[in-house]
Amino acid sequence: MSQIIVVTSGKGGVGKTTTSASFGSGLALKGHKTVIIDFDIGLRNLDLIMGCERRVVYDFVNVVNDEANLNQALIKDKRVDNLFLLPASQTRNKDALTREGVERIFDQLTNEHNFDYIVCDSPAGIEHGALMALYFADEAIIVTNPEVSSVRDSDRILGILASQSRRAERGEDPVKERMLLTRYCPTRVASGDMLCIEDIEEILAIPLIGVIPESGDVLKASNSGSPVILDSESNAAQAYSDAVDRFLGEEVPLRFITEEKPGLFKRLFGGKG
């Protein structure tokens, strides 16, 4: 039975797609057969970040509309075994997705393709596309930035998960909710510009699955079409790797959450930080 994971946030620009790409890759690197689905119909980005935009022939909406079958639309990742991508359509809008269509695809991914994990990259907002991405979820990764508006929107999406997911509608066990803090900048937390981990945990009251430090490597990786988790030198990659381990039940201490003391050289001559 596949586990359906939704990566969501309410707010835009917090790192959902980056997280979906890295998290999905991380699960596949651990040997789990994983597919990442881009639910952001009309604003397709995941294929860019995964570096396979030139290989998209058929997309999610084509499969929903029976214009193509899953085998034609699934793109196998060239770097990571066990990893597949189902791209969004760029020419349609979010209404093109129907519950019946999405459910049929999930059934096929589970029963015919035997995926272990289905990672759903949700669009921003709380409208049709986002609701569709979270409806079938078993697990939710709430991507949050350490600032008040992002935390508020995460809180809103948690309310929606608790009331509008399939599990909620059927009165089953609730969607398992976990939070991933991204773009965390210990220096700015120390100076009071950003919310600290404890404050956010208190407000959202759900388990923390990882803290990804703010890092230039994320943008670099996105632009080069390679999930940041594959850049094993990078702090962000290591933090994503830890988050995947925690997701799979391992106990891993948090890293990169305290301010790095600048060295003597940097203190004398300054630096970009």
Binding site: R156, G159, A162
Partner: peptide
């Protein structure tokens, strides 16, 4: 028994 979230 659960948290009452923003918007609820």
């Amino acid at each position: 028994r659960h948290a009452v979230r923003s918007g609820q």
